[in-house]
């Protein structure tokens, strides 16, 4: 099956510290990959490189067969212009740990802004689509609220609807439930589960081992900037081969 995301030899340094030391990753279309690992292992940086929020220092990333942030000219990669980068990013939805809803806009405007600006979707159509999406995450009734009037779980569900409004081919989740009160985690995981069920290609950085076990097609365990172990959830989570995977999982429980 064709890889929707292909990461090869990805390196990233921040101020002299190697955060990613050569990551390879393949995500086939329609599959869900959960990335687990201790904090500081480079999980978030990997996600942020995939949609080019961070520029890789070495290696490359292909999304749907195209270089992310670069264009091949002869045997060189040229950095693309902002417009082209924006178009590539629009096909990748990202959900952040801290929700990052636009604080100056209502829920509805949060969801319609990007389609209207980046896709020139007419207002009426953008709103119709936004309402369908808000319906899907169970928040159509709160379309006129400002983000601060919503609970964390509601904000994160709006953030998912906002990302889906651009009709992405891939969704990236960066610890989407880590900032939530425990009783609100379930509602966000439900939405993510439904999305996976609909066949969305997803890369999920998470500490929710239960979710990974149930939803992931593959689990990737990262440690110290490398992939330490990968495989089906049953193998990585229940019978890890690597000692550090076992250690990490033991600490979580």
């Amino acid at each position: 099956m064709k890889a929707m995301i292909e990461v090869r030899g990805l390196h990233k340094r921040f101020g002299g510290i190697d955060v990613l030391k050569g990551i390879d990753l393949d995500v086939a279309a329609g599959k869900v990959v959960c990335v687990i690992g201790p904090s500081g292992s480079g999980k978030s940086t990997l996600l942020r490189c995939i949609n080019h929020l961070e520029r890789p220092d070495a290696g490359y990333i292909l999304v749907n067969g195209e270089y992310m942030g670069y264009r091949q000219v002869g045997d060189r990669l040229h950095e693309v212009r902002e417009r082209d980068l924006c178009a590539s990013r629009a096909a990748i939805g990202m959900v952040f740990q801290r929700f990052n809803l636009f604080q100056n806009m209502t829920v509805l405007d949060n969801v319609t802004l990007a389609p209207r600006l980046a896709r020139r979707t007419p207002m009426a159509e953008a709103e119709r689509k936004a309402l369908t999406l808000l319906e899907r995450v169970g928040l159509a009734g709160k379309k006129d609220r400002y983000p601060y009037r919503l609970s964390g779980g509601e904000q994160q569900r709006v953030a998912i609807a906002r990302a889906l409004a651009m009709e992405p081919r891939v969704m990236l989740f960066d610890e989407a439930t880590s900032a939530l009160d425990p009783e609100l985690v379930g509602e966000v995981l439900d939405v993510m589960r439904a999305l996976a069920g609909d066949g969305m290609t997803m890369v999920v950085v998470t500490h929710e081992i239960g979710f990974a076990r149930e939803v992931a097609d593959e689990v990737v365990f990262m440690d110290g900037g490398v992939v330490a172990e990968r495989g089906p959830p049953a193998q990585v989570l229940q019978a890890p081969r690597e000692a550090r995977t076992r250690e990490f999982l033991a600490r979580l429980l």
């Binding site: 902002e82 178009a87 990013r89 096909a91 990748i92 906002r162 651009m166």
Partner: peptide
């Protein structure tokens, strides 16, 4: 970050 991740220009 949320803005540019959605495909908006800077």
């Amino acid at each position: 970050e949320a803005g540019v991740a959605l495909g908006l220009t800077r």
